[in-house]
Design a protein around this nucleic acid. Sequence first.
RNA 1: GGUGAUGUAGCUCAGGCGGUUAGAGCGGCGCACUCAUAACGCGCAGGUCGGUGGUUCAAGUCCACCCAUCACCA
Length: 668
Amino acid sequence: MKNKKRDILVTSALPYANGSIHMGHLVEYIQTDIWVRYQKLQGHNCHYVCAADAHGTPIMIKAREENISPEKLVTSIAKKQYKDLKDFGVEFDKFHTTHSEENKLLVEKIYTSLQQKNLIYTKDIDQAFDTKENMFLPDRFIRGTCPKCAAKDQYGDACENCGATYSPDELINPISTLSNSEPIWKKSEHFFFKLSEFENELTQWIEDAKLHKNIKNKLAEWFKMGLKDWDISRDDPYFGFKIPGTKNKYFYVWLDAPIGYLASFLSLCKNRDDLNYNAYFKKDSHHELYHFIGKDIVYFHTLFWPAVLEGAGIRKPTSVFAHGFLTINSKKMSKSRGTFINAKTYLDNLDPNFIRYYYASKLGPSMEDIDLNMDDFIARVNSDLIGKLINIASRCSGFINKNFNGELSRELDDPKLFNTFLQCSQSIADHYEAREYSKAMKQIMQLADKANRYIEEKKPWVMIKKEEQHEEVQLVCTQGLNLFRMLLIYLTPVIPEISDKAKSFFNEENWHWDDTLSPILGTKINKYIPLLTRVEKEKVDNMMTSSNETTSKAPTNSEKNLITIDDFMKVDLRVALINDANEVEGADKLLELTLDLGESNRTVFAGIKAAYEPKDLIGRHVIVAANLAPRKMRFGISEGMVLAAGPGEKDIFLLSVDAGAKPGMKVK
RNA sequence: GGUGAUGUAGCUCAGGCGGUUAGAGCGGCGCACUCAUAACGCGCAGGUCGGUGGUUCAAGUCCACCCAUCACCA
């Protein structure tokens, strides 16, 4: 049963240093932290490193908006992020930053090494350029009308309304969100990493790393499409590391971010005599390396990253563990819907141990999303943690303290029952190791039920009234407290803070997984102070309310993007009569409308099929943007846009005019 | 649009290779207890396993199609 000591290095994805930590981030950090604490509890040499992800255009822009240097912005945000994580019991051995000396050194070293092996080449590409701001624009900073469904104000890479993906040059009326000007298209030399040369190595690595079935599926899909080389450079202005030998080219943030894992560890090694960086990262290292990530960044961690490491002659990760996203009350986390909960908002109202346990009770090794359902959260935490677990201690300790001067008996009442609990040790350990936390929690709670049933059967509160059974009460409660102690050792990775409190209640110093083997007997316990009290619904409600308040205070997009009356008058809005409406063959969302605009007739494709029947539309008056540039669509040319409101799908509502309006009338 | 995944009691979820009356925890209802910051114990009720069709002696479990939800598309 005793394994030899393992050397393990673990990472969580680096939080991007432009915002606060929220409940979604915490799924990952808590999942990782539980695993690391478990390994440490088993006595392994396990190290957990992370860092602030400091580079990239969004951080540069935000710093500019706040009129401070990007360095300063990153430092202050990283400090807050680190504190939030720490307050949730997430215990890093090192939290560094990608904007560090160590990282610069490693990035350049790796790049040079790739270059020497002829794995880097340059190529000119066309990119959107903002002439006012004098910079190239990432897709996210371009908005315009979706070429597929004509939804307005969509990002440069994908439409949130119809889900279409495209390149920014396909957008209708593209606008730079930085200057509100129309971008031009300009050539620029970019640096590429030859990912395509690593197909064989990657295929082998995917097998070796025993990646989860879901990840493998996803990878197979990408392999089928063929690996494309990776663009690793960005143009000035950019916040990042300059590419050696160039004047104005920078490394793309996604190149230096994962290298930040190594840099953070390197920095840790500097302060620790017992750690050797090379032992972990030399090509043939047998030390273990694991990355915990979200499913959105599987691509970077299972293709680019191992390929870059392979190319640079560095060891590859032992494995990569991807988790799903968090939904709140079954809804996507969203600021506008008030389902966006910041870490800080949670902490202002609730105990971090609650959410650590709740996440653990739902987490498994798969990439499925998990839901934070508030009613479920309250029920689960109160029932499991308070009602079952903590209750064992609080119903036993009173007897020991009041009647036996706080002293535990010298033997157990039921060693067999104790052994039953012990027999689950391996299975629970295996669950932790395999990141099957939900199964581990279930098993532990079944034991807690068993402990409560034992006390119920023995009825110490009856025995204490009979002189001849007095001593048996001590035996029974000592038994109960020992069962409780074992369960808390099992739960130490999940609720470390409660575990610490229990430790001092038992007057013990350190707990190791194998301390479950021998019961604690004949010693004194301290006065019992409730280790944890129930979740109150009011606190949860309060948290939800303040989440709503803080998020709705943020200026909305419309407030920021004010336009003048002249801007508004540029849009020629007209009343139109729908003469005809038909379904479009091959289009899922479009209807073809023939409109009477008074002087002329128009054909317009409108994305309203989910909401309206063609026959109900004929004869209706609607409002049309009449001077919209005609747009060639797959099904024909659309000569305008019918105005409608709503989030999409079935919830689209056409604007109509009061009786008397005639086709062709101008709206003003 | 393409690809992948998910859909089992009110809620959260288990259900290797298809096999008798489909499981757990929570919640609900009833009983009991009073040691426990109402916690615990015993019992009961709840499901045509998203839909349709198929393969089979037999399907929640395999196949096809459909619907809904989610994610990814460098």
